[in-house]
Amino acid sequence: MKKQNINSLTRFFQLSVVLLAIIGLSGCEDVIDLKTETGPSQLVVDGWITNQPGTQTITLTWSSPYFDTNPIKPVLGAKVTVTDNLGKVYTFTDSEGTGKYTWGKLATDTLGRIGGKYTLKVEHEQEVYTAKNEIKRVPKVDSIAYTNETLPIKPDKDKGQKTGFIVEFYARDFVGTGDTYWIKEVINGKTNVDKAEKISIAYDAAFGAGAPSDGLIFIQPLRRSITYDSLYQAGNRVGVELHSITNEAFYFLQQVVEQSTNGGIFATPIANIKSNVTNADPNGRKALGYFGASAVSKMETVIDPKKARPED
């Protein structure tokens, strides 16, 4: 129910809000001041390698007090390598001293390949952290389509216009249960996942392991998840990146979404997001974050109203 989608669910929520407001039961959120304890800072790994050519980046930072307003501190002077299952070692370097460790200088340099297994090793002062991941198969994106749409209620100021287009992509999940994917909206050639609640992940062709969807075309709410909370307009350059991810990455991202959208009366208990990075010293400080790996397929289009499907 948390998964938002511009069409039916949104409409349902809008309706509920209107009706609940009439009877005075609409909940409200207020930003408040909160004092919390602070723990020691921990190393954070933010890295995701792909099979796409170009520079690959692994960012290392320190965690800070939750309400800290200072810039996040980078982890400097670490030794960062990725080793694949064939024994090849890729060394990542922080040439600018910003905590962004990169590999691949040329636009054609490619690190990942489908079926490859990768081990990240981060050595910093006395501590050694490792994480493993692998690149799974990814289906190709078959097409992108868009449909005329008029929202029932005028959207909020920053949520676009009342009329426009719902963009959706078509691709088919592989046969065999347990393929997991991360679907990213692409605007003007760049992925646009700026808040956690926009993370769209698929288990086979649907939301979770429970739904029967193996081998299907991605279900409509997922196809349309690249149209998040506002409609597109004629001339927009829009697309999708479909990333294959491991089941472990799927559950990691699911926890990111859950932690970030955990309001309301149906909130689940808040728990720490489980990292795949481990400290070689079991009594050492634990690391946070995630080291991921994906194969990517993508497609883009420019919206031409003449090619749009008529409104549902």
Partner: peptide, 17 residues
């Protein structure tokens, strides 16, 4: 409540130490 915050993938996340 989280004790610490961290950035990952452009998101701000929380962690209880």
């Amino acid at each position: 409540f989280p004790t610490n915050g961290y950035g990952w993938g452009g998101f701000s996340l929380g962690n209880n130490y």
